[in-house]
Design a protein around this nucleic acid. Structure first.
Length: 479
RNA sequence: GGCGCGGUACCCAAGUGGGAAGGGAGAGGUCUGCAAAACCUUCAUUCGUGGGUUCGAUUCCCACCCGCGCCUCCA
């Protein structure tokens, strides 16, 4: 098995992946907080995680991935109350939308998608364990984690607690905490708020404890990989480490992977700047799922990604190029035989593709190997040195690449239609298209080029592109 | 201030102590009735700036400039 190296935020180094359970990689992924639609920045992180899991599987690993859904927090409680419905009902619709969104982007479902509110009992058990070991204290019914009892606090984010300057910014809750950095494991209910009646009293869980409880429940005390956006490293992941390791006495996570943020047209994405896009906003503007996925995956995950209109155009063209190649492979007739040179091209591409991804999921290198292959194979086809037996081999390679990339197989129209974004101007019935193309071929044969061009224009107006090929056949596709 | 990421052609972007990947756009050409697709050619003689190490640095070291993130329950 090829060695896979990943950049571990805990050690700030590239390290070889060495799963605790041979052949199986256990991953925990911080999922969405379902109080609103996820935005394009969220999906940068989720697409990265999808590339990671797809690559691991393509390398023969079993993957056991758990993603949480945070369906209880202040915003949810308040919004649900304002809407006069329960938090479960309130979050259901956002969970549904999230599932539709990740499906639209070709993101595979994790093996376990778990809701925080289904695991209150597990969190209570974890908090009890921390209480027994003396890592907590209670103030007014809220239970806090005492950071001073956990000397390794700060090892992920490399913050030095001794150097903290008190003052500048003070949390509003500070008065009931011993230390400003202590965080809530359990929050006492406020009047009128949703709460659970439990062995540790009435209340609701703090944000951090949910991830510790659920990850260890499904993946064991020590996980192979924990992923999330860079912003989560502190305090969320730092707190997860503290809770989990204090409770079990074992290392919580062997490798921490953090995806850099996405910015929009060079600016930080924020609601006040009005550059806050959901997937559906982009679909409504006419962008295809494959375009968005390609753009999100084309920049390696540890690099900030500038999400721009121009970038979307470029991504769209790139995907077109790859898809055109596969279409050509399947449609064109080649002379009998097979060419060892082409086989060599395939092997080189497959090797470089894997090597790129194995080096900290370097998608830019992986894509370069695919494009190299596409160009060289196209050249061989143009020169007539690409033979009949080479085609299925090349198709197989492209399918292998797409098992990770997931942008070649064209589900765009289908996906958009499912979400209500069908484009009626592209819905000319196939029979009518075929009839027009037949008429155009006849017109061309009788050298009535004016009529032929009229038909081509008519099809173009309906979003259909016609391509004449060398051997006289005609291909068409939706634009 | 602390911790971290980055500055490579018009845009996106890889990379290494010794010939600067790949994609998009542009220009010219081949093919085509014309297109489209594809192919060919072209597109970085300061790889942020200034020093240093070296036979040789975009790559290592130092300083500086610029952009960004986290240090507040934001992926």
């Amino acid at each position: 098995m090829r060695e896979i190296r990943l950049y571990n935020t805990l050690t700030n180094r590239l390290e070889p992946l060495d799963p605790l359970h041979p052949g199986e990689v256990r991953i925990y992924t911080c999922g969405p907080t379902v109080y609103a639609s996820a935005h394009i920045g969220n999906f940068r992180t989720f697409v990265f995680q999808d590339i990671l899991r797809r690559f691991l599987r393509s390398q023969g690993y079993r993957v056991l991935q758990v993603m949480n859904v945070t369906d209880v927090d202040d915003r949810i409680i308040h919004s649900a109350a304002a809407a006069g419905i329960g938090i479960r009902e309130y979050t259901d619709k956002y969970i549904r939308a999230f599932l539709e969104d990740i499906d639209a982007l070709g993101i595979e479902m994790p093996e376990e998608l778990v809701r925080a509110t289904d695991h209150i009992e597990d969190m209570v058990t974890l908090i009890e364990k921390l209480q027994q070991k003396g890592f907590t204290y209670t103030t007014d019914g809220s239970i806090y984690f005492r950071i001073s009892k956990f000397p390794e606090y700060g090892k992920l984010s490399k913050i030095d607690l001794s150097g903290i300057q008190p003052g500048a910014r003070v949390d509003v809750d500070q008065y009931d905490k011993e230390n400003a950095r202590d965080f809530a494991l359990w929050k006492a209910p406020k009047p009128g708020e949703h709460f659970w009646e439990t062995r540790i009293g009435p209340g609701r869980p703090g944000w951090h404890v949910e991830c510790s409880a659920m990850s260890m429940k499904y993946l064991g005390d020590t996980l192979d990989i924990h992923t999330g956006g860079v912003d989560l490293a502190f305090p969320h992941h730092e707190n997860e480490i503290a809770q989990s390791e204090a409770a079990t006495g074992k290392p919580f996570v062997r490798m921490w992977l953090h995806a850099e943020h996405l910015i929009i047209e060079g600016q930080k994405m924020s609601k006040s700047l009005g550059n806050f896009y959901t997937l559906r906003d982009l679909f409504a503007k006419g962008h295809k799922p494959s375009t968005i996925r390609f753009l999100l995956l084309s920049v390696p995950y540890r690099r900030q990604l500038n999400f721009t209109e121009d970038g979307l155009m470029q991504a769209r063209s790139s995907v077109e190029r790859l898809r055109n190649f596969v279409t050509r492979l399947k449609a064109e007739q080649f002379a009998a035989g097979s060419n060892r040179e082409v086989e060599r091209l395939v092997e080189t591409a497959e090797n470089e593709f894997e090597a790129g991804l194995a080096n900290d999921i370097n998608t830019a290198v992986a894509l370069a190997s695919v494009f190299d292959f596409v160009r060289d194979a196209n050249t061989a086809m143009d020169r007539g040195t690409f033979l009949e037996q080479d085609a299925p081999r090349a198709v197989a390679a492209m399918e292998k690449f797409d098992a990770v990339l997931a942008v070649l197989a064209d589900r765009d129209d289908e996906t958009l239609a499912k979400l209500g974004f069908s484009r009626p101007n592209q819905r000319m019935p196939a029979a009518e298209i075929e009839a027009l193309i037949g008429e155009r071929i006849a017109a061309k044969k009788s050298r009535n080029f004016q009529r032929a061009d009229e038909i081509r224009q008519k099809l173009a107006d309906s979003g259909i592109v016609v391509e004449d090929t060398k051997d006289g056949t005609v291909r068409w596709k939706y634009k």
